[in-house]
Protein backbone atom coordinates (compact mmCIF):
# COMPACT_ATOMS: atom_id res chain seq x y z
CA UNK A 1 0.00 0.00 0.00
CA UNK A 2 1.41 3.42 -1.00
CA UNK A 3 -0.06 6.82 -0.31
CA UNK A 4 0.11 10.06 1.62
CA UNK A 5 1.70 9.90 5.09
CA UNK A 6 1.59 13.65 5.72
CA UNK A 7 0.22 16.77 4.02
CA UNK A 8 0.54 20.49 4.55
CA UNK A 9 -0.44 23.77 2.99
CA UNK A 10 0.72 27.38 2.92
CA UNK A 11 -1.24 30.47 1.88
CA UNK A 12 0.24 34.00 2.21
CA UNK A 13 -1.89 36.37 4.30
CA UNK A 14 -2.29 39.09 1.65
CA UNK A 15 -5.43 39.28 -0.53
CA UNK A 16 -6.73 41.52 -3.27
CA UNK A 17 -10.40 41.75 -4.23
CA UNK A 18 -11.71 41.52 -7.79
CA UNK A 19 -13.25 45.01 -7.34
CA UNK A 20 -9.85 46.52 -6.56
CA UNK A 21 -8.30 45.15 -9.78
CA UNK A 22 -11.35 45.98 -11.93
CA UNK A 23 -11.35 49.58 -10.65
CA UNK A 24 -7.85 50.19 -12.05
CA UNK A 25 -8.61 48.80 -15.50
CA UNK A 26 -12.12 50.21 -15.87
CA UNK A 27 -13.53 46.69 -15.97
CA UNK A 28 -16.90 45.43 -14.73
CA UNK A 29 -16.13 43.74 -11.40
CA UNK A 30 -19.55 42.08 -11.13
CA UNK A 31 -19.16 40.56 -14.60
CA UNK A 32 -15.76 39.10 -13.63
CA UNK A 33 -17.04 37.85 -10.27
CA UNK A 34 -20.00 36.18 -11.91
CA UNK A 35 -18.10 34.96 -14.98
CA UNK A 36 -15.14 33.52 -13.06
CA UNK A 37 -16.90 32.77 -9.75
CA UNK A 38 -13.97 34.37 -7.90
CA UNK A 39 -14.21 37.08 -5.21
CA UNK A 40 -10.59 37.62 -4.21
CA UNK A 41 -7.16 36.04 -4.56
CA UNK A 42 -4.07 35.49 -2.41
CA UNK A 43 -0.94 37.58 -3.04
CA UNK A 44 2.57 36.64 -1.87
CA UNK A 45 4.44 39.16 0.27
CA UNK A 46 7.60 40.70 -1.21
CA UNK A 47 9.65 38.19 0.81
CA UNK A 48 7.70 35.11 -0.30
CA UNK A 49 8.09 32.91 -3.35
CA UNK A 50 7.62 29.32 -4.48
CA UNK A 51 10.56 28.17 -2.34
CA UNK A 52 9.50 29.86 0.92
CA UNK A 53 5.90 28.62 0.61
CA UNK A 54 7.11 25.11 -0.26
CA UNK A 55 9.27 25.01 2.88
CA UNK A 56 6.42 26.12 5.16
CA UNK A 57 3.92 23.67 3.59
CA UNK A 58 6.49 20.90 4.08
CA UNK A 59 6.96 21.71 7.79
CA UNK A 60 3.22 21.14 8.23
CA UNK A 61 3.43 17.89 6.23
CA UNK A 62 6.29 16.73 8.47
CA UNK A 63 4.26 17.49 11.61
CA UNK A 64 1.53 15.18 10.30
CA UNK A 65 3.84 12.48 8.92
CA UNK A 66 5.97 12.48 12.10
CA UNK A 67 9.04 11.18 10.29
CA UNK A 68 12.71 12.14 10.39
CA UNK A 69 13.31 14.39 7.32
CA UNK A 70 16.55 12.45 6.72
CA UNK A 71 14.35 9.56 5.55
CA UNK A 72 13.00 11.60 2.64
CA UNK A 73 14.70 10.21 -0.48
CA UNK A 74 13.25 12.60 -3.07
CA UNK A 75 12.21 16.26 -3.08
CA UNK A 76 10.22 17.27 -6.15
CA UNK A 77 8.93 20.82 -6.48
CA UNK A 78 6.33 21.39 -9.18
CA UNK A 79 5.87 25.04 -10.21
CA UNK A 80 5.75 27.40 -13.16
CA UNK A 81 7.25 30.16 -10.98
CA UNK A 82 10.54 28.68 -9.76
CA UNK A 83 12.48 31.70 -8.43
CA UNK A 84 15.56 30.94 -10.56
CA UNK A 85 15.62 30.19 -14.30
CA UNK A 86 18.71 28.07 -13.60
CA UNK A 87 19.20 26.73 -10.05
CA UNK A 88 16.83 24.21 -8.51
CA UNK A 89 14.14 25.10 -5.98
CA UNK A 90 14.33 21.56 -4.62
CA UNK A 91 17.82 21.83 -3.13
CA UNK A 92 16.85 24.90 -1.07
CA UNK A 93 13.72 23.15 0.18
CA UNK A 94 15.67 19.96 0.96
CA UNK A 95 18.35 21.94 2.82
CA UNK A 96 15.78 23.93 4.82
CA UNK A 97 13.91 20.84 6.01
CA UNK A 98 17.12 18.93 6.80
CA UNK A 99 16.91 16.26 4.08
CA UNK A 100 20.35 16.95 2.52
CA UNK A 101 22.59 15.45 1.24
CA UNK A 102 21.19 11.89 0.94
CA UNK A 103 18.30 12.86 -1.34
CA UNK A 104 17.31 13.20 -5.01
CA UNK A 105 15.96 16.62 -6.12
CA UNK A 106 14.23 17.72 -9.29
CA UNK A 107 12.09 20.69 -10.27
CA UNK A 108 9.03 19.94 -12.35
CA UNK A 109 7.29 22.26 -14.80
CA UNK A 110 4.05 21.61 -16.66
CA UNK A 111 1.95 24.79 -16.36
CA UNK A 112 -0.62 24.02 -13.61
CA UNK A 113 0.03 20.26 -13.59
CA UNK A 114 3.56 20.31 -12.12
CA UNK A 115 2.37 19.58 -8.56
CA UNK A 116 0.34 16.47 -9.36
CA UNK A 117 3.24 15.36 -11.55
CA UNK A 118 5.55 15.44 -8.51
CA UNK A 119 2.94 13.43 -6.57
CA UNK A 120 2.69 10.88 -9.39
CA UNK A 121 6.47 10.37 -9.58
CA UNK A 122 6.89 10.09 -5.79
CA UNK A 123 4.18 7.41 -5.61
CA UNK A 124 6.01 5.45 -8.34
CA UNK A 125 9.39 5.67 -6.61
CA UNK A 126 7.92 4.65 -3.25
CA UNK A 127 5.98 1.71 -4.68
CA UNK A 128 9.12 0.44 -6.44
CA UNK A 129 11.05 0.72 -3.13
CA UNK A 130 13.60 3.08 -4.71
CA UNK A 131 12.98 5.47 -1.80
CA UNK A 132 11.30 5.14 1.60
CA UNK A 133 9.58 8.54 1.55
CA UNK A 134 9.17 11.11 -1.21
CA UNK A 135 8.20 14.78 -0.85
CA UNK A 136 5.96 16.15 -3.61
CA UNK A 137 5.14 19.86 -3.72
CA UNK A 138 2.86 21.95 -5.92
CA UNK A 139 3.51 25.67 -5.43
CA UNK A 140 3.19 28.86 -7.45
CA UNK A 141 3.27 32.63 -7.26
CA UNK A 142 1.82 33.12 -10.70
CA UNK A 143 1.36 36.39 -12.54
CA UNK A 144 -1.22 37.51 -15.04
CA UNK A 145 -0.45 40.47 -17.30
CA UNK A 146 -1.95 43.70 -15.86
CA UNK A 147 -5.54 44.09 -17.09
CA UNK A 148 -5.63 40.57 -18.57
CA UNK A 149 -8.40 38.20 -17.42
CA UNK A 150 -5.70 36.07 -15.75
CA UNK A 151 -4.82 38.91 -13.38
CA UNK A 152 -8.13 38.40 -11.53
CA UNK A 153 -7.24 34.83 -10.61
CA UNK A 154 -3.43 34.28 -10.65
CA UNK A 155 -2.70 33.58 -6.98
CA UNK A 156 -0.12 32.15 -4.58
CA UNK A 157 -0.07 29.00 -2.44
CA UNK A 158 1.61 25.66 -1.85
CA UNK A 159 0.66 22.10 -0.95
CA UNK A 160 3.15 19.46 0.19
CA UNK A 161 2.67 15.69 0.44
CA UNK A 162 4.99 13.09 1.90
CA UNK A 163 4.42 9.80 0.11
CA UNK A 164 5.32 6.53 1.77
CA UNK A 165 4.30 2.97 2.60
CA UNK A 166 3.99 3.28 6.39
CA UNK A 167 1.48 5.23 8.46
CA UNK A 168 -0.59 6.18 5.45
CA UNK A 169 -3.48 8.60 5.88
CA UNK A 170 -4.74 8.29 2.28
CA UNK A 171 -3.97 5.29 0.12
CA UNK A 172 -3.38 5.85 -3.60
CA UNK A 173 -5.70 3.21 -5.05
CA UNK A 174 -4.73 4.00 -8.64
CA UNK A 175 -3.63 6.74 -11.05
CA UNK A 176 -4.19 7.55 -14.71
CA UNK A 177 -2.70 10.24 -16.97
CA UNK A 178 -3.96 11.79 -20.23
CA UNK A 179 -1.76 14.04 -22.42
CA UNK A 180 -1.90 15.68 -25.86
CA UNK A 181 0.00 18.54 -27.52
CA UNK A 182 -2.39 21.48 -27.11
CA UNK A 183 -1.06 25.08 -27.25
CA UNK A 184 -3.69 26.73 -25.01
CA UNK A 185 -1.37 28.66 -22.62
CA UNK A 186 2.39 29.24 -22.71
CA UNK A 187 5.25 31.51 -21.74
CA UNK A 188 8.36 31.84 -23.90
CA UNK A 189 11.84 32.23 -22.40
CA UNK A 190 12.55 35.77 -21.05
CA UNK A 191 8.86 36.73 -21.18
CA UNK A 192 7.52 38.01 -17.85
CA UNK A 193 3.82 37.18 -18.41
CA UNK A 194 2.24 34.11 -19.99
CA UNK A 195 0.01 34.20 -23.07
CA UNK A 196 -3.18 32.23 -23.60
CA UNK A 197 -5.53 31.38 -26.45
CA UNK A 198 -8.62 32.82 -24.68
CA UNK A 199 -11.64 30.58 -25.23
CA UNK A 200 -9.47 27.83 -26.69
CA UNK A 201 -8.34 27.19 -23.07
CA UNK A 202 -11.83 25.77 -22.35
CA UNK A 203 -13.36 22.96 -24.45
CA UNK A 204 -10.32 21.55 -26.34
CA UNK A 205 -7.99 22.08 -23.41
CA UNK A 206 -9.31 22.02 -19.80
CA UNK A 207 -12.52 20.07 -20.45
CA UNK A 208 -11.16 17.56 -22.98
CA UNK A 209 -8.23 16.53 -20.75
CA UNK A 210 -10.02 16.40 -17.40
CA UNK A 211 -12.95 14.51 -18.93
CA UNK A 212 -10.54 12.19 -20.77
CA UNK A 213 -8.51 11.45 -17.65
CA UNK A 214 -11.58 11.34 -15.38
CA UNK A 215 -13.60 8.89 -17.47
CA UNK A 216 -10.63 6.57 -18.04
CA UNK A 217 -9.76 6.68 -14.32
CA UNK A 218 -13.31 5.66 -13.33
CA UNK A 219 -13.24 2.79 -15.83
CA UNK A 220 -9.80 1.67 -14.66
CA UNK A 221 -10.87 1.35 -11.00
CA UNK A 222 -14.41 0.20 -11.95
CA UNK A 223 -16.09 2.86 -9.81
CA UNK A 224 -18.94 5.32 -10.33
CA UNK A 225 -19.06 9.01 -9.30
CA UNK A 226 -21.48 8.23 -6.46
CA UNK A 227 -18.94 5.82 -4.89
CA UNK A 228 -16.92 8.92 -3.91
CA UNK A 229 -17.49 11.26 -0.97
CA UNK A 230 -15.32 13.99 -2.52
CA UNK A 231 -13.99 15.15 -5.89
CA UNK A 232 -11.43 17.84 -6.67
CA UNK A 233 -10.41 19.24 -10.04
CA UNK A 234 -7.98 21.90 -11.24
CA UNK A 235 -9.42 25.34 -10.45
CA UNK A 236 -8.40 28.03 -12.99
CA UNK A 237 -11.58 29.79 -11.87
CA UNK A 238 -14.54 28.82 -9.69
CA UNK A 239 -16.77 27.78 -12.58
CA UNK A 240 -14.77 25.25 -14.63
CA UNK A 241 -14.31 22.67 -11.83
CA UNK A 242 -18.03 22.70 -11.04
CA UNK A 243 -18.95 22.25 -14.69
CA UNK A 244 -16.38 19.53 -15.38
CA UNK A 245 -17.51 17.75 -12.21
CA UNK A 246 -21.15 17.84 -13.38
CA UNK A 247 -20.14 16.54 -16.83
CA UNK A 248 -18.38 13.58 -15.19
CA UNK A 249 -21.45 12.85 -13.04
CA UNK A 250 -20.40 14.36 -9.68
CA UNK A 251 -22.72 16.48 -7.54
CA UNK A 252 -22.12 19.89 -6.00
CA UNK A 253 -21.78 18.50 -2.47
CA UNK A 254 -18.88 16.24 -3.55
CA UNK A 255 -17.01 19.19 -5.07
CA UNK A 256 -17.55 22.09 -2.65
CA UNK A 257 -15.17 20.97 0.15
CA UNK A 258 -12.14 21.08 -2.16
CA UNK A 259 -13.26 24.15 -4.12
CA UNK A 260 -10.96 26.89 -2.82
CA UNK A 261 -10.76 29.11 -5.91
CA UNK A 262 -13.61 31.57 -5.08
CA UNK A 263 -11.64 32.89 -2.07
CA UNK A 264 -8.11 31.82 -3.04
CA UNK A 265 -7.78 32.30 -6.81
CA UNK A 266 -5.87 29.96 -9.09
CA UNK A 267 -2.70 28.72 -7.41
CA UNK A 268 -1.60 26.94 -10.61
CA UNK A 269 0.58 23.94 -9.60
CA UNK A 270 -0.89 24.25 -6.10
CA UNK A 271 -4.52 24.25 -7.22
CA UNK A 272 -6.00 20.74 -7.08
CA UNK A 273 -3.31 19.58 -4.56
CA UNK A 274 -4.43 22.35 -2.16
CA UNK A 275 -8.05 21.34 -2.77
CA UNK A 276 -7.05 17.81 -1.74
CA UNK A 277 -5.59 19.13 1.54
CA UNK A 278 -8.89 20.90 2.33
CA UNK A 279 -10.68 17.58 1.77
CA UNK A 280 -8.22 15.63 3.95
CA UNK A 281 -8.90 18.20 6.71
CA UNK A 282 -12.53 16.97 6.78
CA UNK A 283 -12.62 13.44 5.37
CA UNK A 284 -13.46 10.37 7.45
CA UNK A 285 -11.75 6.97 7.38
CA UNK A 286 -12.69 4.92 4.27
CA UNK A 287 -13.93 7.97 2.34
CA UNK A 288 -12.99 7.86 -1.34
CA UNK A 289 -11.58 10.98 -3.03
CA UNK A 290 -11.45 11.56 -6.80
CA UNK A 291 -8.82 14.01 -8.05
CA UNK A 292 -7.93 15.26 -11.54
CA UNK A 293 -5.36 17.99 -12.20
CA UNK A 294 -4.92 19.93 -15.42
CA UNK A 295 -1.91 21.64 -16.95
CA UNK A 296 -1.88 23.57 -20.19
CA UNK A 297 0.16 22.22 -23.01
CA UNK A 298 -1.67 19.90 -22.06
CA UNK A 299 -2.46 17.06 -19.71
CA UNK A 300 -4.27 15.72 -16.66
CA UNK A 301 -3.24 13.35 -13.85
CA UNK A 302 -6.06 11.47 -12.12
CA UNK A 303 -5.86 9.88 -8.66
CA UNK A 304 -8.21 7.78 -6.55
CA UNK A 305 -7.49 8.09 -2.80
CA UNK A 306 -8.95 6.14 0.09
CA UNK A 307 -8.68 7.78 3.53
CA UNK A 308 -7.45 5.61 6.42
CA UNK A 309 -8.08 5.55 10.18
CA UNK A 310 -4.85 7.46 10.80
CA UNK A 311 -6.35 10.70 9.45
CA UNK A 312 -8.06 11.30 12.80
CA UNK A 313 -4.73 11.21 14.66
CA UNK A 314 -2.80 13.62 12.43
CA UNK A 315 -5.37 16.07 11.08
CA UNK A 316 -4.99 18.54 13.97
CA UNK A 317 -1.18 18.35 14.12
CA UNK A 318 -0.77 21.32 11.72
CA UNK A 319 -2.73 24.30 10.44
CA UNK A 320 -5.82 23.45 8.35
CA UNK A 321 -6.30 24.78 4.85
CA UNK A 322 -9.61 26.62 5.38
CA UNK A 323 -8.23 28.21 8.57
CA UNK A 324 -5.26 29.59 6.67
CA UNK A 325 -7.58 30.75 3.88
CA UNK A 326 -10.12 32.49 6.10
CA UNK A 327 -8.07 33.87 9.03
CA UNK A 328 -5.46 36.62 9.46
CA UNK A 329 -6.13 38.13 6.04
CA UNK A 330 -4.68 41.50 5.01
CA UNK A 331 -6.26 43.29 2.03
CA UNK A 332 -4.04 45.19 -0.40
CA UNK A 333 -4.75 48.17 -2.61
CA UNK A 334 -3.71 47.80 -6.25
CA UNK A 335 -0.63 50.03 -5.83
CA UNK A 336 0.85 47.93 -3.03
CA UNK A 337 -0.06 44.75 -4.89
CA UNK A 338 1.73 46.04 -8.01
CA UNK A 339 4.82 46.86 -5.92
CA UNK A 340 4.79 43.44 -4.17
CA UNK A 341 4.47 41.63 -7.51
CA UNK A 342 7.26 43.59 -9.23
CA UNK A 343 4.87 45.09 -11.77
CA UNK A 344 6.31 48.59 -11.42
CA UNK A 345 9.26 49.54 -13.61
CA UNK A 346 11.90 51.28 -11.50
CA UNK A 347 15.09 53.23 -12.26
CA UNK A 348 18.45 51.52 -11.74
Amino acid sequence: MVGITGYGVYIPRHRIKVEEIAKVWGADAQAYKKGLFVEEKSVPGPDQDTITMSVEATFSALKRAQIDPKKIGAVYVGSESHPYAVKPSGTTVAEAIGACPDVHCADFEFACKAGSEAMFVCLGLVSSDSIEYGLAIGADTSQGAPGDALEYTAAAGAAAFIMGKDNIIAEAIDTYSYMTDTPDFWRREYQFYPRHASRFTGEPAYFKHILGAGKAMLEKVKMKPNDFQYAVFHQPNGKFPQRVGRLLGFEKKQIETGLLCPKLGNTYSGSSPMGLTAILDEAKPNDLIFMVSYGSGAGSDAFVWRVTERINQVRDSAVKTRDMLNNNKSYLEYGTYAKYRGKIRKGE
Binding site: P46, D49, E56
Partner: peptide, 20 residues
Protein backbone atom coordinates in the same frame (compact mmCIF):
# COMPACT_ATOMS: atom_id res chain seq x y z
CA UNK B 1 9.92 31.45 12.80
CA UNK B 2 9.02 31.37 9.11
CA UNK B 3 11.24 30.71 6.11
CA UNK B 4 11.41 33.86 3.95
CA UNK B 5 13.41 35.66 1.32
CA UNK B 6 15.79 38.00 3.15
CA UNK B 7 16.93 39.92 0.08
CA UNK B 8 18.14 39.43 -3.45
CA UNK B 9 21.27 40.69 -5.16
CA UNK B 10 19.57 42.90 -7.74
CA UNK B 11 17.86 41.35 -10.75
CA UNK B 12 20.67 38.93 -11.63
CA UNK B 13 22.36 37.93 -8.35
CA UNK B 14 21.62 35.23 -5.81
CA UNK B 15 18.45 35.14 -3.72
CA UNK B 16 19.21 34.92 -0.01
CA UNK B 17 16.76 32.96 2.14
CA UNK B 18 16.56 32.65 5.89
CA UNK B 19 14.46 33.02 9.02
CA UNK B 20 12.08 35.80 9.96
Amino acid sequence: IEFRKIYQEGEAGIICYGYK
